[in-house]
Nucleic acid binder design. Structure first.
Lengths: 230, 230
DNA sequence: TTTTAAACCTGACTTAGATCATGTTTTGGA
DNA sequence: TCCAAAACATGATCTAAGTCAGGTTTAAAA
């Protein structure tokens, strides 16, 4: 895929005129990482936007006690580091680290800002995007505050199904490499609890697996468990 | 205060030119509510922005089980309902309800959108604002996922101190009417747990009270307890 | 001022989920 | 293909925090 071709895929960039996309393509650097490497850490100054070309990346925040919460998992096509930090010149509020080999494109924020000024509608798109992310984050906070462990996990699986689910024979394959620890960190649970719940859901016929990936056998069932709110 | 005078105070409107502020002032309606009334409910179509003139409002999400989480408390000068819903024409992702008598100004979203298009920099301000809110929401989610009850409450009190704290003799008065239930709903805890922790903190000399309002006697101490991350 | 309801508080009990301990299965590198 | 290191799994405790049940204080309305 050409540089401008892949830029075209990104929701937040898709509104741009061809001319602008091409200009932007000039302005980006491609970087590759191995597994488990930090792209940036909490407190680093925010200088670029990142677009994932291949692989997946997790946005993480750690507690003083050393435990970590995964705020979001990003997959190819996602643009990240587009939060407050980049826009107001602050520092990153969390870490981003690779979950396997990753290639991404970096766009210097100045280049992007210039585009926004020249494309009045573009800014409205960014506003919508941030609004959606905000609603998501609030939904997550609510789930953590009010829901039981199995409901939290169920609603996480439903969300994942929507993002990375691929229809296969007999279910919906979650087409992303996630360890049990990752799932636990996303649901705010201990690994053991996560494993126990997954086993229970498998016994009940809601889940299956292919290799290391999960298969959702009964999405409706999971949605019901999650409380039919996600 | 004149209409345009109070609009001037709102962060998200402050960048506007005098002419635009005056135009906007023509375009808004003032509405008053009693205690415990809904301004909008989850699922309602989002049609206006709201600016609080007096009183306070809580943004709430409920679980299927009937428990509720307070996502944010808004005080005079705050603009709310400026999330995804308004910008993409969707519905409200949660409820807003008054915590006492409230007066607010409603701005039809079309009027505001027109302004944004004519003020390119204005959109950037909104982007920054949403970015900040997003970071906050993620911080909250992390706290819920990883922190102990007393740390959650401590970090809530620290946040409140920054927003509504007023220096008084011997401490920092939280100048807002909040029941124990409200605090519990904000921290994602049971009322009883909240009360027990507050009592413990009072015994330790970190907190006091004046009438029904809390006084923070030792902000540093609370910050330490919270994990020195908020 | 009295009454009533709401808010606040405390103790006793229960439980969901964390922690610990230990074994098994995968998997990727030598 | 063998070995070491992850990742996965499950049982046995332990504990933080929820629930329940009963009080007291505060505030507001009659």
């Amino acid at each position: 895929m050409t540089k401008s071709g892949s830029l075209r895929q990104i929701p937040i960039l898709s509104f741009l005129k061809d001319r602008d996309i091409k200009a932007l393509a000039q302005d980006l650097t491609e970087v590759s990482y191995g597994k488990g490497q930090y792209i940036f850490k909490e407190g680093d100054p925010a200088e670029c936007f990142h677009v994932i070309k291949s692989g997946s990346v997790k946005c993480v925040k750690s507690s003083p006690g050393g435990k970590e919460a995964i705020l979001k998992v990003l997959t190819p096509g996602d643009l990240f580091c587009c939060e407050a930090a980049v826009f107001d010149g602050g520092t990153h509020p969390g870490c981003a680290l690779t979950m396997g080999p990753v290639t991404l494109m970096k766009i210097r924020k100045e280049a992007y800002f210039k585009l926004l000024k020249n494309n009045p509608d573009a800014a409205l798109d960014v506003i919508k995007y941030l609004g959606t992310r905000l609603t998501e984050a609030q939904e997550t906070a609510k789930t953590f505050a009010l829901e039981r462990a199995d409901q939290r996990l169920a609603s996480l699986l439903v969300k994942l199904a929507k993002r990375v689910g691929r229809d296969i024979l007999g279910g919906l394959l979650l087409d992303i490499q996630l360890s049990r620890q990752d799932l636990a960190d996303m649901a705010g649970l201990a690994v053991e609890t996560t494993i126990r719940i997954l086993s229970k859901l498998t016994r009940k016929g809601l889940l299956g697996k292919r290799g290391r990936r999960l298969i959702i056998r009964d999405l409706k069932g999971l949605e019901t468990l999650a409380g039919s709110s996600a």
